[in-house]
Design a protein around this nucleic acid. Structure first.
Lengths: 152, 152
DNA sequence: GGATCAATGGACTCGCAAGTCCACAGAGCA
DNA sequence: TGCTCTGTGGACTTGCGAGTCCATTGATCC
C-alpha cells in the first residue's frame, strides 16, 4: 500500500540522523555521510545544500570541512526536514472534480484529505532527531551485504 | 509539506465516490465519470480497468454499458481502493543506509516509518465510500470555473 | 446482419523527480 | 604562493509515472 515520501526527503532524514549521531560541533564531510547513508554522492550534495539554505545545517569548505547541525538534535523535528525539502503548505492534491477546492467550498473528498494531512503532520511534529537511535547503529552496523535493492 | 498519494490513486477515489453516489445496479458510462471527476478520459479508463480487475468494480460494454460498484459503498474502504492501485504490502522505503531493513534487523529510521505507515493505514481502513457526501455535491455542484490548475 | 456505442489493451509521448558530471570557489596546509 | 581538500552550482542524462492515441472486442439496438 502506497503513500510516498519523496526519496530526496528520506535521504535528508538519513543524513540528518547521521549528523545527529556525530560529535556536536564537529564538521562531518559529505564523504562520510555517503558511506553511512548509501545515498549517491552527487545527489546527496544537492540534498545537503537544500538543508543548508533552509538553515538546518551549517557547512564549511576546505580541509576538515563538512556539515554539522545548526541546532541540537532535540530541536530538529522531522517536520522541519520535510519543510526544508518541500516548502509548499497545506494538504496537497485535493481537487475532486471542479476547480481547486477551498475551506469554504470543499469537494466531497476534502475532509478526508485534511484528516490524512493532519495525521501525517502530527507524526512529523512529534518526532525529533533526538529520538533516532543512530549512534549505536553506526557503532555496530549489522553484518549484511551492501547495495540495498530498491523495494517498490 | 509533502507526502504524496499517487495521482492515479486519487483519481480512483474520485471515480469510486461518484459511482457510490449513483443509483445502485445502474451502469454508469465512463463518459459520465469523466464529466464528474474531470480526469482525462483515456487515463481514467486505465484507472477503472485496475479497479475492475481488483474486483471493486463491474463493467459491461455496448449500449448502456459502463461501470458500477461490485459491493455496496459501506463495504468499500479507502484501503481497498489504495490496495487495488498498488498491491505492494507494508511500509515502503525504509532503508536507512544498509541493506533493506527487516523487523529483526531494523534500521534507525524503521520505527518511524512503521509509525507513519500505521497512521496512514488507520485512516484508510476507517473511511468507506458511504462516508463521502458525493450525491449532494453532484446534485448542486458549486458555481465555479472548470479546469483546475494543478496545485504543486 | 449491420450500425453504433462503450470497454479493452497495447504502444506511444511527455514532464518531472532522481541521479550524474564537471568546472569553480573558498578554506587550510606546507 | 601554490597545492589539495571539500562544498557550490549549473548543465546534463535517465527512469518512471502521468497522460495520449488508436485499433479491437463485445454488447445492444434497429
Amino acid at each position: 500500500m502506497e503513500l510516498v515520501l519523496p526519496t530526496a526527503t528520506e535521504y535528508a532524514l538519513r543524513a540528518m540522523a547521521c549528523l545527529a549521531a556525530a560529535e556536536p560541533a564537529v564538521w562531518v564531510p559529505s564523504r562520510d555521510l555517503v558511506a553511512q547513508t548509501h545515498v549517491p554522492a552527487a545527489y546527496l550534495s544537492k540534498v545537503l545544500r537544500r538543508l543548508v539554505t533552509a538553515g538546518l545545517l551549517e557547512a564549511t569548505r576546505g580541509h576538515h570541512g563538512g556539515f554539522r547541525l545548526a541546532r541540537p538534535p532535540s530541536e530538529v523535528r522531522f517536520a522541519d526536514v520535510l519543510r526544508a525539502m518541500d516548502d509548499t503548505e497545506g494538504p496537497q492534491r485535493c481537487q475532486f472534480g471542479f476547480a481547486a477546492c477551498s475551506k469554504t467550498d470543499p469537494c466531497p473528498l476534502h475532509p478526508f484529505f485534511v484528516d490524512l494531512d493532519r495525521r501525517m503532520r502530527a507524526w512529523a511534529e512529534e518526532a525529533t532527531l533526538a529520538d533516532v537511535d543512530c549512534a549505536s547503529y553506526l557503532a555496530a552496523p549489522p553484518d549484511r551485504a551492501l547495495a540495498p535493492p530498491r523495494i517498490r
